[in-house]
Design a protein around this nucleic acid. Structure first.
Lengths: 225, 225
DNA sequence: CGCCATAGAGAACACTGTTCACGCTTTGAG
DNA sequence: CTCAAAGCGTGAACAGTGTTCTCTATGGCG
């Protein structure tokens, strides 16, 4: 059964190579311009040979999405480990800052994840969720350390799906705090997207990080009420 | 000089037709799958004939971006006219609600504007800004009716670019209120994007509009302090 | 050692954006 | 009214794309 046969090892190495050069292409041509043939060229392969490792162009995109989620989650986790912050508000800030930093470092990857899905293409949820929920789970862990605010029955129903999720039930997170955390996170994402996609012209924000810090302030206020 | 010669009239009509069928294609195949040849086919033209009206594929994309900005601004303006709200908070809510409604109606157009730019393609600012600033200007008009909060020198510098813009100086909008309005708007955009791009799985939000109303509440709180 | 799954090559098909040379038709000026 | 010019459209062509076949040989496993 040997999962570690030479064959499998080579295959894994080549798959990693494919992901590497595809990632390079993504980094400076963007997702829409990603070309299977160009990837094959960079690898010294025939285009058709690529199909031994990748089912589709969409499949390669899915791999890149998973890879991007993983890269972002690794980056945020590393920032959390690096920081000595214990207070929930500080940890939230750390998550926000590292998310923004990662997004600025990998704009096309961020766009791939939080921007528009490429064509009509919906990433298959069963393959992306595991990597995609890592950062949200870090946020949930922060929320779990917060005192429970008064209940909010109306929005609880609206969040039924997320409240029933084992990730939140295991941490004993209630509807009110979940709503606040989600709102704060939406604000962070909105701020990052706006800055990244230059929604207000390129010279509108002269000191983006100052502005982002103020956004983090209000986000923390939202979470803490 | 006749700006309205038969020639020009036909040209305008055909340009409108092109924009129409390109818009249809955008609506159900997405921006990345937009095909010049397909547009030409739908119009009964030769692909090369299209180049009399459109310089590039990117040019067509730019036209669609402008068109989308216009469509969204028209929609928001219509909602504002329809509503009898005069209080700034209510008008802000109207803008937020109609923006979300428009985005849900035209997800691909929204993605084209607020999602990721298509390839590495940056929309030429000089052509899109006029249409693109209409909704922000509506927001500025709302902010102008608000009492001035205490000053915030730190973020004022960060917003120098926007503060110097004639659109804000004409309304006498200060840095503090601008910062709040911008933050609130980022929250709205983050909420719409999250809902639209299904950032948390498809069944996470059982009652999206209830959740969005709660987001609007927080956004109004941000603006009013 | 021999078998055969596997990796890869290469050609082919249907697309795409884009350009070019060529005609036809309308327009506006002399 | 004439006639050159401008505008509009065609059709062919080129390079590039995703994708699918058929083929070959090589290296690992029984």
């Amino acid at each position: 059964m040997s999962v570690d046969g030479i064959r499998a090892r080579n295959r894994a190495a080549i798959e990693a190579e494919i992901l590497r050069v595809a990632g390079e292409q993504l980094a400076h041509t963007g997702a829409a311009a990603l070309s299977l043939r160009a990837v094959a060229r960079d690898l010294g392969m025939t285009p058709s040979a690529l199909y031994r490792y990748v089912a589709d162009r969409d499949d390669l995109l899915t791999l890149l999405i998973i890879d991007s989620y993983t890269s972002m989650a690794d980056s945020v986790e590393a920032a959390l480990d690096r920081s000595a912050a214990v207070a929930p508000a500080d940890r939230f800030r750390t998550i926000g800052r590292s998310t923004r930093a990662w997004a600025l470092d990998h704009p096309h990857r961020y766009a791939l994840i939080y921007g528009s899905p490429v064509p009509d293409y919906r990433a298959p949820a069963d393959r992306t969720t595991e990597a995609g929920t890592r950062v949200p789970n870090l946020l949930l862990a922060v929320l779990a350390d917060l005192p429970a605010p008064p209940e909010e029955p109306a929005t609880d129903r609206a969040l039924a799906g997320m409240l029933a999720d084992p990730a939140t039930t295991a941490l004993g997170i209630g509807g009110a705090i979940l709503r606040r955390g989600l709102t704060a996170w939406m604000l962070v994402l909105g701020a990052v997207s706006t800055e990244l996609f230059e929604g207000f012209g390129s010279d509108a924000f002269s000191e983006p990080e100052v502005l982002f810090e103020s956004v983090l302030d209000t986000a923390v206020e939202i979470v803490l009420d």
